[in-house]
Design a protein around this nucleic acid. Structure first.
Length: 547
DNA sequence: ATAGGGTTAG
């Protein structure tokens, strides 16, 4: 569906950017040589943003973005997905899988049809099914299980004369998508259709995690107890650790502990088992229970064990106790490592003890402990949060010179810092840098990369950029999740763009993603305020239809 | 996925 709206978007941004830059340079006389990206903001929103986001070569002669013009708002991600994305890039045209993925995307989005229709009509797509295509479709539609599953089923019995069978990897990806979307009935069906040599601990591990994430702790445990008989997957120590880790990570140390008490007679626990439990108890601030496990005869506490305690006391804000534990570690020849230091530094930064936090950095360097990407990400976050954006950007630039390549978390942290400090163009440039070949440590953006950028678009009413970003997400196989829809709906509501908010709301509902109660309420109230009675009733009936 | 981020901020 294509919705045409006439919009006027503010043209004052470039001037504001200039003014800000002027102020900034005047305020920081001490540091005249800024790194290139800090001075990169040009007076106009440059054409590179458009070229980059539309996947065109940067030498393209297309006119630069003008936020003044009327345009078609790509308000629906579905609309975005039906665009002929591959035509934009000669590079992509050379690659067959890219062509095929867009054919499939086109088809799946055009159809509002039922699942059987999709399966029956997909053949008209004319694509060659391969494992990489299946994996890509599953990634791109990882929040739309209906479409992903329809394609998956069709792919297995497509192509007469061409013998394609789903690989174990594809099966596991399908199971994971169904679990993520909480379509557990369908997930069970797929599992039962898989022959037993296809079902591995990898598969069951995904199932247990997804169940635990949905709060179905007992079912996760049952899967474990049944899996040897039903799927021929061994219930050994490693498998038990997977189960317990899933339970702890999804906040049920109680279930993990119960499993341990019930099974440790028949399945021999190892040091990981104890560390998982200790971590769970520390996370729940049950330090006495954690201590009790430390004293088990066959278990020797290691740096992971101590670090769990450090983290627990950090979250309590008890930094005196943290220091004691760090001292004890050194005494026992179990020196804190980069993970330990990251936890302490981050917690101090969060507690607004920035000086102390940076002291940890110094102490760590003294200890000869080498920072890694996650450490740098924390450091950048702290510096930016305390207003030291310039320093944060410097750390970002410097880290590769220290031999550490940037990962997606580092980029995400820097992008959200840039947005927080109103360096919009720099944020977009960072997104571009992620996919540049010459950058060491190329990494693909994920849904968290885009969130601050999308939020910024909503706040500043940059609707064209918003559309381009959504399109960019699709091209990078980043599936839009319910959290993103909530962000868009709330952000647009707060900017008074309530029609657009409605479009995203309807699309989310159509995809079976239900925004929170408070988000629905916000939208309805906003419509009420604007006297948009008809739209209000429509949204209300949509909400009603779910109950 | 045995320990590290943050999900929403005025």
């Amino acid at each position: 569906m294509l919705v045409k709206l006439r919009l006027r978007v503010s043209s004052s941004i470039p001037r504001r950017i200039c003014q800000r830059r002027f102020l900034l340079t005047n305020n920081t006389l001490s540091n005249p040589d800024e790194s290139p990206i800090l001075t990169a903001e040009s007076p106009e929103l440059p054409s590179w943003i458009k070229d980059f986001l539309s996947n065109k070569p940067s030498s393209s002669s297309s006119p630069p973005i003008s936020d003044d013009e009327d345009f078609v708002i790509p308000s629906l991600a579905g609309w975005v997905q039906t665009q002929k994305l591959s035509q934009a890039s000669p590079v992509n045209l050379a690659k067959k899988p890219t062509e095929d993925i867009d054919k499939v995307s086109d088809f799946l989005n055009k159809k509002d049809a039922s699942y059987t229709d999709i399966v029956n009509e997909l053949s008209s797509c004319d694509v060659v099914v391969s494992e990489s295509l299946v994996l890509q479709v599953l990634r791109r539609f990882s929040n739309n299980w209906n479409q992903a599953y329809a394609f998956f089923i069709w792919a297995a019995k497509s192509q007469p004369g061409f013998n394609y069978n789903h690989s174990p990897l594809s099966y596991n990806a399908m199971v994971d998508v169904l679990g993520k979307c909480r379509s557990f009935d369908t997930m069970w069906r797929v599992l039962d259709e898989m022959s037993s040599e296809l079902v591995t601990l990898d598969t069951m591990s995904k199932v247990m995690r997804r169940l635990a994430k949905a709060g179905k702790y007992n079912e996760a445990v049952d899967v474990f107890l049944e899996m040897e008989r039903r799927y021929n997957v061994r219930t050994d120590t490693n498998a038990m650790n997977c189960l317990m880790d899933a339970l702890v990570k999804e906040n049920s140390i109680e279930h993990a502990h119960e499993v341990f008490l019930k099974l440790s007679d028949t399945i021999k626990p190892d040091s990981r088992t104890y560390n998982i439990l200790i971590h769970g108890f520390c996370k729940a601030r049950r330090f006495d229970d954690a201590m009790g496990l430390m004293k088990v005869a066959e278990f020797v506490p290691d740096v992971v064990t101590y670090t769990s305690f450090v983290e627990g006391y950090c979250k309590e804000g008890d930094f005196r106790r943290v220091d004691e534990i760090l001292e004890e570690m050194r005494e026992r020849g179990c020196k804190p490592n980069v993970v330990t230091y990251t936890i302490v530094m981050h917690a101090l930064g969060k507690a607004r003890q920035v000086g102390e936090a940076l002291g940890v950095y110094e102490k760590m360097k003294e200890d000869g402990c080498v920072p890694d990407a996650k450490f740098y990400s924390s450091l950048i976050h702290i510096l930016s949060k305390t207003g030291r954006f310039k320093d944060a950007a410097e750390v970002f630039e410097d880290m590769t010179k220290q031999g550490v390549s940037r990962d997606v978390l580092v980029y995400n942290t820097m992008i959200s810092s840039a947005v927080h400090h109103s360096r919009d163009e720099m944020a977009l440039r960072l997104l571009k840098r992620m996919e540049e070949e010459e950058e060491e440590g190329f990494c693909s953006p994920n849904v968290e990369t885009y969130a601050p950028l999308l939020k910024m678009c909503c706040q500043k009413k940059k609707m064209k950029l918003l559309g381009a970003l959504l399109q960019h997400m699709v091209r990078n196989d980043v599936s839009i999740d319910v959290a993103t829809y909530i962000l868009l709906i709330r952000g647009l509501c707060m900017s008074g763009k309530v029609e657009e908010a409605c479009l995203f709301f309807e699309e989310a509902m159509r995809k079976g993603m239900v925004p929170r109660e408070s988000t629905c309420k916000m939208l309805v109230e906003e419509l009420e305020k604007k006297g948009m009675e008809e739209a209000k009733l429509k949204i209300q009936s949509l909400v009603q239809s779910l109950v």
